[in-house]
């Protein structure tokens, strides 16, 4: 079982238990986590599932692929190390306890 925590900009935390094979975006939208929209359904096209991975967890994630990297570079001037589109984070059991901060986006 993989339990992850989403933290809102105001500090409110929400724990979500992921189903096998789910992405961070899928778990968040299924649970109704505010601020994670996933408008493109997980195709890395819309950047509406932007999160900051908690510093202690950054090293636990596989690196971004080229498309995710380019999407993030397109929406941010500088891409912080922990910035991710969480549709690209597969919630494998090793990621139990992962903490993701929801990033406020305009619009």
């Amino acid at each position: 079982m993989t339990t992850i925590t989403f933290i809102q900009p105001d500090g409110a935390a929400r724990e979500v238990v992921a189903k096998p094979g789910e992405s961070g975006m899928q778990a968040a939208t299924r649970a109704g986590v505010e601020g994670i929209i996933g408008e493109c359904g997980g195709s890395c096209m819309c950047a509406t599932c932007h999160v900051e991975v908690a510093p202690q967890d950054i090293g636990r994630l596989p690196p971004r692929d080229d498309i995710e990297q380019e999407m993030l570079e397109s929406i941010l001037t500088d891409v912080p190390e922990g910035s991710r589109l969480c549709c690209q984070i597969k919630l494998v059991p090793e990621l139990d306890g992962l903490v993701l901060h929801v990033v406020e986006i305009a619009g």
Binding site: Q26, T29, R30, G32, G41, G42, S43
Partner: peptide, 26 residues
């Protein structure tokens, strides 16, 4: 539910699960 995955993940996945646009509570 999301329509685009129907031609991809929906056919490939072990379970025929829909990806909802919004959770029911919405």
């Amino acid at each position: 539910y999301h329509k685009p995955p129907l031609s991809k993940a929906f056919l490939k996945g072990g379970e025929a699960e829909l990806q909802l646009l919004r959770p029911e509570e919405f």
